[in-house]
Amino acid sequence: MKSVLATLAVTTALTLPSLAMARAVTLTTTLNNYGGNGAYLALYVTDAKGSYVGSLWMAGGKSKYYGHLADWYRETGGDPAQINGITGASVGAGRTLEITLDLADALFDEGYTLHVDAAVENMRDSPNEVAVALTADGAGAPVRGRRYVRSFSYGM
């Protein structure tokens, strides 16, 4: 009995800090009514030096089109291992994509930037459509994209 309690105490003690080091973050992307087909969107993070750290989400499941997400593709070479388990459907014009992810606390206020690359059939590609610094203060503040994104925000 004592050993069970001890084990429980140890596992709880080990688990709690890890839970505290991550939080649920909702990324909300609303597209303009640009009058075209669904947009492919790559959401990824760079560090303070501008180096690619990793991807958060890919909207659009056909790897043959990833070359149109130019900045993301340059950093990853289109490697699906970067987006396995975080890939969904492309997003239609005027629609809102809402993704809730369990993200590491260390991402905020440490100089990281979240980028969105966008591409639409028959229309111009838009690398770095959105670039927003990840800070606790910036949460909830909408940012406008260059071409296809009407607003982007993250909430904690």
């Binding site: 890890s18 080091m21 991550a22 993704i99 369990d102």
Partner: peptide, 9 residues
């Protein structure tokens, strides 16, 4: 390194 070990997306 971006994701925690909690809820899936």
């Amino acid at each position: 390194g971006l994701f925690g070990n909690g809820t899936p997306p």
